[in-house]
Nucleic acid binder design. Structure first.
Lengths: 239, 239
DNA sequence: GTTTATTTGTTCGTATGTATT
DNA sequence: AAATACATACGAACAAATAAA
């Protein structure tokens, strides 16, 4: 019995009209005034609804011209729907996810660069976790995680096979993360785990997740199979 | 003599206060009410200013709690400022860009997959361009471009060394583009051009740029040196 | 080429709802 | 339970860019 705000209801109706082909890409939407009268809401509400759909890359606007339907990207978009865990992202793919904990070290020696990034001056406040994550039994990614100990106190290795986000957010809420995508070659060990060949290309994704108070919570270096995973993006031209 | 809207002036002032350390990450901003009185504008204007800074990953909000300053990402963020050309992006880096046209074929045989993506049923409506682009004389990327002929009629090879966007937008305006990032290995030819070794990792970025009327204008496959280029992203957690 | 109409952009004021502390 | 802070929503008006007459 969710009670959605009216701008989201308007957004849903517009989305529906796009899906059913009433509004087609290459075509202009009715003006904000017309949409406001059609849905019996204020123009500001229509604008919020449109903004909402623009954020999802369904629409875009041009000042003085109108609002247009965007050509859909062929495949799944990663990222645009915000920061989500692997499990949630698997669902969006319509696949089942599977996690195997490879390493759980409660007293790791973290490299200095990571200590710096985590704003720590000494060892001892981090735990180290390595996980293999699969979609439908196919190895997708290896995660190397340094996590603030205080957020995962008295956690068993078994619990780590589930959503790390959920676990951590019992203690602190994660607000956002910065990530960086680069390309590299798989070494012997990585190749074996991901069931690929040595020197096959992989996507290395480095990310740091922060709390609202800008405290780094997770330092994550993940390696994705390049043949199974790509990162998608939609860029809008600002004239 | 630009006359910026007041929400952007407010945004600028807030941005300034972040830069000068008045507002620090880990710290909450004054409430929307307080900011509204401080800047002598309506609360809606403050909200627009904040939204503006959220889009640039400088702030984020939590309902009922407040608005916070985001920990800055250490390096340059690609993408977040929208669709920009290579030349413009070089400026953001504080570097000079250099372009060399390697191939300009006005009657190419395009692969079927590209014809499909460009919504064409026959050959003949595309031109093919290959360009090497450098930052400060360092090879950064090789571009393989298929461009709708109608947008680059009677263009000389020399003109292609400048901004392709500018050239095209004399005919049609580019509205947005979908892009996909993947990892692969450099072949012999690519390695030579990018001055790397064969089988070194490269980032392959595939993108299609569309006009407002959803007509595909450019089909671009670019190869970036993995040691020089990464893609950055900021994801916000939606609870 | 200039004016006019259309469409999005900005901004105010006001009120009420919802989440957090 | 009350106060604080962000979220939603209405109405109204004028500005700015674009397109059509």
């Amino acid at each position: 019995m969710e009670k959605l705000p009216s701008y989201q209801l308007v957004a849903k109706e517009i989305e529906e009209k796009i899906k059913t082909g009433v509004y087609v890409s290459s075509q202009k939407l009715p003006s904000e005034y017309d949409l406001a009268t059609e849905f019996a809401v204020s123009r500001l509400t229509v604008r919020k609804a449109i903004d909402f759909l623009i954020q999802q890359n369904l629409l875009f606007k041009m000042k003085g011209k109108g609002t247009y339907v965007m050509q859909p990207s062929e495949k799944y978009q990663s990222g645009k729907s915000g920061l989500v865990g692997f499990t949630e992202s698997a669902k969006a793919f319509g696949k089942s996810s599977n996690t195997k904990v490879l390493v759980y070290d409660q007293t790791p020696q973290a490299p200095q660069t990571i200590l710096n990034a985590m704003q720590l001056t000494k060892q001892g406040d981090l735990v180290y976790i390595e996980r293999l994550r699969s979609f439908d039994e196919e190895p997708m990614t290896i995660e190397h995680l340094y996590v603030k100990s205080s957020t995962v106190k008295e956690v068993t290795k078994e619990q780590l096979a589930n959503s790390l986000f959920e676990l951590i957010e019992k203690t602190v809420e994660i607000a956002y993360s910065h990530q960086e995508v680069e390309a590299m070659l798989a070494d012997q060990e990585l190749a074996k785990l991901l069931q690929i060949k040595k020197n096959d290309p992989v996507l290395k994704v480095n990310s740091i997740a922060y709390s609202a108070t800008a405290i780094p919570i997770i330092y994550d270096t993940s390696y994705y199979r390049a043949d199974k995973y790509t990162f998608k993006n939609t860029l809008i031209r600002n004239h």
